[in-house]
Amino acid sequence: MSERQPLPPPPREPDLDECCGSGCDPCVFDLYDQRVERWRDRCAAIEAANREAGFGPREDAER
């Protein structure tokens, strides 16, 4: 049996001082939200592949 695919680390949340407060579009926090959504989708795909390979759910999964 192959090994369980590891989940990627979550994206780093920007510090509050990384936002200039001028209403930029997109804001660094908007970009972060997009990265988190892609990360969650990627984790879900990896977890599905792991289940298909016969691995059970991760005990230590954080999301």
Rank of each mutant, 00 (worst) to 15 (best):
P14H: 03
D41P: 01
P8W: 05
E59T: 00
D60S: 03
A48Y: 13
C24Y: 14
P14S: 09
N50E: 08
R58C: 03
A44G: 03
L16D: 08
R58N: 04
D30R: 01
C43H: 05
D41K: 06
I46G: 09
L16G: 10
E52R: 12
P14M: 04
F29M: 12
P10C: 02
D30E: 15
R4Q: 13
R58Y: 06
E47N: 09
S2C: 02
A48F: 12
A53C: 07
P14Q: 08
C24G: 04
A53G: 09
P57Y: 11
V28K: 01
P26I: 15
I46Q: 08
D41Q: 15
G56K: 03
D33P: 00
P57W: 09
L16S: 08
C27K: 03
F29V: 07
V36D: 02
E37C: 13
R40P: 01
E37M: 13
G21N: 05
C20A: 05
D33C: 12
E62N: 07
P9T: 01
R63N: 05
L7I: 13
D33R: 15
E3D: 08
A53E: 06
N50S: 10
P8I: 14
E18C: 10
C19F: 11
L16Y: 10
F55N: 01
C19R: 11
D41W: 01
C19W: 06
C27L: 07
P9I: 00
P11I: 02
D33L: 11
A45Y: 00
A49Y: 01
E47F: 00
A48H: 15
E18S: 04
E18T: 09
L31A: 09
S22M: 14
C24I: 11
A44W: 03
C27Y: 12
A44D: 14
P6R: 15
P9M: 04
D41F: 04
D25Y: 04
A49R: 06
R63Q: 08
L31Y: 05
N50P: 14
P6Q: 11
E37H: 14
R40Q: 14
W39C: 00
D25H: 04
R12K: 04
Q5K: 13
R35E: 13
P10D: 05
R4L: 14
F55C: 00
I46M: 11
P14E: 07
R12E: 07
A61T: 04
G54V: 11
D60Y: 01
G23V: 12
L7T: 09
Q5H: 02
A48C: 09
G54W: 04
E62M: 15
D17S: 06
E37N: 14
P8F: 12
Y32N: 01
L7M: 13
E47K: 00
P6K: 15
M1Y: 02
N50T: 10
P26F: 13
E13D: 02
P14D: 05
P57F: 09
D15T: 06
C27S: 02
P10M: 08
